[in-house]
Computed example of a mutant assay.
Amino acid sequence: MQDNSGMIWNFTKMQGTGNDFIMLDGVRQPIHMTPERARALADRHFGIGADQILLVEEPLHPEADFRYRIFNADGGEVEHCGNGARCFARFVHEQGLSHRNPLRAEISTGLIVLEETGDGEVTVDMGQTRFEPADLHFDARGLETRACADDTLYRLDPPGHEGLMWSLVAISNPHAVLQVEDVDHYPVGAIGPAIESHPRFAQHVNVGFMQIVGRRHIRLRVHERGAGETLACGTGACAAAVAGLRRGLLANPVRVDTRGGTLHIDWEGGRLRMRGPAITVFNGQVDIDALTATTRGSTRT
C-alpha cells in the first residue's frame, strides 16, 4: 500500500448518538493507516478527537459495495462498530461514492447491510450473533455459571466487587453485559476497565451496564475496548438488548437510551437490526505526518 508521507488527508467528522468518528475516504485518496496515525487523529487535545477512525475502501469481497475498517482511539483495528456503520452509510451517500440504498459493507468478519430510511436515521442489519465463550476468545474454565432462561451467566469479580454475573455476546466484536439497578450511579469507571482487560478475555472486551426500565426499554452505559466509556455504543446496545431478551426480561423491539441518544434494536428470528441517527459535524483537511509528529509522545485522555 502506498505511503502517504507529506500528504493532506480530507476527512469528515461525524457522530451517532454522541459516539464520534473521523471518516476517511480511502477510495478517492490513498490512505495508509497505522496505529500511530490513528492515535494522533483521535487525540482530543493534540489531534482532531474521536472515539474511532472509520476508513472506507474498495471491497475485497465480490458481493460488497465497500470495505469498512474501524480503528479505536488506542490505534488498534477492531471488527465492528454499530454507530460507526450508520455514519459509514451516510458518509458514502453524502460524498457521492454510491447512491445504492441499501448498501452492503464488508467488515473483517463478513458482510453487513445498511439502509438510510429517509427520516434522518439509518438501519443496520448487524449480522450474526453468537454466545459461546470461544466466540469472544474467553476462557470460562472453572468459572461459576448460572442459567437464566436462554442465557448463561458467568461470574467475574473485579477488585472490590463480588458476585457479578455477566452475559456474553459476540456481535462481530465481543461484549460482556451486566444488569444493574441504577446505571447513573454504578461504578462504571472502576469496573469497566477491570473487565475490559481481564486476563480471561484474550482480545479484551467491551463492557456494558444495563438498567431495565420496562419490558421494551433499557438504559445503558458502555466502556468500549480501546476507547473508554463513550456516549453511546451501537454494538453494545445490540448486545445489551439481546442479553435482556435471552434472559426473558425484555420483549421486541427494545428502546436503548444511552448518554448520547436513543437507539432501537430488534432481534427476532435470528435477525438483529439497529436503527438510529447519523450526523455530519464538519469537513476538514489534516496534514497527517505533521499531526503525528505533534502528538507523538502525548497521552490521550
Rank of each mutant, 00 (worst) to 15 (best):
R225W: 13
S298E: 13
C87Q: 14
E58T: 10
R200F: 09
C87F: 14
A140P: 01
V286R: 02
E224K: 11
D74K: 07
H80P: 00
G248L: 08
A105C: 11
V256E: 08
R221V: 10
E57G: 04
A170D: 04
A232R: 07
R86D: 04
E58Q: 15
T295R: 03
D266V: 05
I279F: 09
D125M: 00
F71D: 09
N4S: 14
V169L: 08
F11W: 04
A278T: 07
I279S: 09
R259I: 07
G260C: 08
G127S: 01
I195F: 05
E94V: 03
G118P: 00
V286H: 01
F131A: 03
T17H: 03
V27L: 06
M7A: 14
Q179D: 15
A290G: 01
M14E: 04
V177P: 03
R155N: 02
L54T: 06
V92T: 01
I212Q: 15
L250S: 02
R225Y: 10
R86M: 06
I48H: 04
L153C: 07
R44F: 06
F88P: 02
Q211V: 15
G16M: 09
D20T: 08
T12H: 12
T109H: 01
G208E: 15
P277G: 04
G284V: 08
A239W: 13
G276Q: 08
G82K: 03
L41T: 04
L60S: 10
H80V: 14
C148Q: 13
A64C: 04
E106S: 02
N173G: 04
L103Q: 05
L156V: 10
N101F: 11
L249T: 09
G49P: 01
Q285W: 07
H93K: 13
C87N: 10
P62N: 11
T12K: 10
E94F: 06
E132R: 13
V205R: 02
F88C: 12
L41W: 11
S172F: 04
G261R: 12
Q179K: 15
T262L: 14
W9A: 02
G228L: 05
G76Q: 15
R90D: 11
L24I: 03
F21L: 12
R67G: 01
A176K: 07
G84V: 08
R273A: 02
Y186S: 01
L143E: 02
